[in-house]
Design a protein around this nucleic acid. Structure first.
Lengths: 232, 232
DNA sequence: GTGAAGGCTTGATGAACATCAAGGATTGAG
DNA sequence: CTCAATCCTTGATGTTCATCAAGCCTTCAC
């Protein structure tokens, strides 16, 4: 890794209170690489050789079975993926591909486990991150099991709306194909779900969605902090 | 906690390599209690006052939203629940009720966090357990998103079959109502799914299921170790 | 520009699953 | 044993969602 890249890596929450020596041995054998969009980084079933940390861009986690494929989630700057597999020294349960051009830090698994044992602060960061991943997964699971497709879309729109400053319109952060897969439906059905939401003030123009009746959309969505809030 | 209970608690994997002093301070303020079946232990949204460890019996984790309810998973002896909420000092995302009469250890959250910081071995056990919980959740999520209801049932039957020694029949470990909810379907549909599996050698008699054509059932189920194996 | 490719939408149809209503089977209390 | 309660099953029906097929629309290479 080049010396000029170090500050950006050091600034990641994951390394916030880590000692100099532990940080040095973590990044010493690590790679910071830029990948183009749509590149498959890992495949489910592979052994966990590296921990991946997203520095810039966005990564999609997905899984296949029986010829079907589904998106499990996305990872943003500061987030890690495949952490549990690295800690357990097990195989990956998910595949990952870049959703956009992305800068990603790869740390050899062995070094992660070593630093985990030797550095208190790193261990604590790892646990906090793992707990966050777990709770995110549980929320996703509740979303899928307790809501219909239209409700999931409505709540996701409200979330993006909040994220983007609640200005009455939303820029979809991903392809519709990817959004559909995250929400557990087909692209065709996402299209129809948008139509279903038209009477609730939802108008789609390409990747820009205007929300002209938030209160009515909210009544339909019935958002639940124990599913939709990101950091509870 | 009574002195006679200590050995059984000490023997839990979670405490395996924990120092005497850390163990003592963990159990010092802990409760070991026996609860009857169908008792609600915690409700989603509550603040995480205790870590729960199942010593005997079985606990169901479930969640509600919009008047709907769904089972997220079950916890067996040696397993914990609500670990992530305790570590993050956040609210519970799931409710829990005993599925059977159960003995459960309650450790005050504060003590868990203290022991986590002071005892290496406990910290490691916690991380391993949390990683296991996470991976279990991901597998459940893949199960739901990538399979039909009948496929989920077929794979679950094969799992129970393995667990119970592969003798060609299976004793259902829970009520059908609970199994249906775990598999993300209604009790009516579970009944029909069992009928769908009849041509594959599946015969149900109350809580006893005979599997007379494992290979044909396996062909239908298409089991996937990255979904169905418990400890990969 | 023009053509091709890929993403998105729409319609028609069918499969998967939920809901409602009723009846049968078990279980447990008295 | 008998009754009531609960759980489970079955049938009829309707909703939700996927699939297939076609067409549109944007984008990009040439």
């Amino acid at each position: 890794m080049r010396a000029t890249d170090l500050p950006q890596v050091r600034a990641l929450e994951l390394f916030a209170r880590v000692s100099e020596s532990a940080f040095d041995s973590l990044v010493q054998a690590a790679y910071l690489q830029t990948f183009p969009a749509q590149l498959e980084l890992i495949a489910e079933g592979d052994t966990a050789d590296f921990l991946y940390v997203v520095v810039d861009g966005c990564v999609e986690l997905f899984a296949k079975s029986n010829g079907r494929e589904s998106t499990i989630g996305t990872v943003h700057p500061g987030g890690t993926f495949i952490l549990a597999a690295v800690l357990k020294d097990a195989v990956y349960l998910m595949s990952a591909r870049t959703a956009q051009k992305s800068r990603i830090l790869l740390i050899p698994s062995e070094d992660v486990r070593t630093a985990f044992e030797s550095d208190e602060a790193f261990a604590r960061s790892i646990v906090v991150e793992l707990a966050r991943c777990y709770r995110t997964a549980i929320k996703e699971h509740k979303d899928i099991k307790l809501r219909t497709a239209v409700e999931r879309l409505a709540n996701r729109l409200l979330r993006y709306h909040q994220d983007q400053g609640a200005r009455g319109n939303v820029e979809l952060p991903y392809d519709k194909r990817l959004i559909a897969s995250m929400l557990g439906m087909t692209p065709e059905n996402l299209s129809r779900a948008f139509n279903t939401l038209k009477p609730y003030g939802v108008d789609v123009q390409g990747s820009c969605v205007s929300l002209s009746d938030i209160s009515s959309l909210t009544r339909l969505a019935k958002p639940n902090p124990l599913i939709d809030d990101r950091d509870t």
